[in-house]
Amino acid sequence: MTYFLTQLANGLSYGLILGLIAVGFVIVFTSTGVLNFAHGSVLLSGAYLVASLQGPIGFWAAAAVGVVGAAVLGVLINALLVRNLAEANPGTAAILMLGVDIVLLTELTRRIGNNVLSIGAPWGADVVSVGGITLPTSRVVAAGLAIVVFGLLWFLFARTGAGIAMRAAAADSDTAAMMGVRPSRTGAAGWALAGALAAVAGIFLASFPAPGVAPTLALSSFAAIPAWVLGGFDSVVGAIVSGLIIGVVTALAVGYEAELHFLGRGLGEVVPYAVMILVLLVRPSGLFGRKEAVRV
């Protein structure tokens, strides 16, 4: 039982971090219609900033710079590239982001080399033990922070003018524009939010129990894609809930691999996608997706 609860806690805390990344996908997609293939390298850029600055200026200041830096990077990508596409449509935008990803990732790989840069967080390799369940402190902090961030996002979208403008633009950009919502502003806000969330996720994904900042960190954004799709592409709540589902299912598949051997080895990698395809077979618009998105 303790074992089950440990894996469950592992999965939930990991799932909350996946949720941070998946929400970034959702916000960029709803605000500018872009499938952001460069999300992973934005995440890595933020984490790299933190790791390389934490020595000289301390962890907390570095974390602030990293989060702001990733947000600015997102805004710049949107303003300089996405808005200047020769023809704006989701297909070309997605490929544009692939190009951006190649450039960013190549440069970061060159800078990091084969080092694993320490993120220098104050929680180090500490762990918290409650009733026989041991969880890394970083994961507990991550879970707490993610819940706070999700609360703030709710407040932003439900209670502030800027957030309502973003939602309106996402739901119907033409009507929103007629009502005075500036799509350039909501787009920039979306990219900034997504970049900041990615950097926060990056900090925790580079903290213990993970080793630090290495180029492979950029791949972690791929792990959030099933969560995004499962949640329904355009639903922030869906992304958070699906993040949790994917996190838990993955942790249990790995934890009980010995018992699930008949399904083949290396189950942890395929299970998120298997869950995603199964859900889409039943609900093509995902768990929380708007029906409009797929209406025939």
Binding site: A94, I225, R265, G266, L281
Partner: peptide, 27 residues
Amino acid sequence: ISGRLRGIYLGLATIGLVFLARHLMVN
């Protein structure tokens, strides 16, 4: 799935196939 999903949504759903393929190829 391919008959019901549209555009970019289908694109993301089909990512799953690639990982499924890898699992099958290895096992």
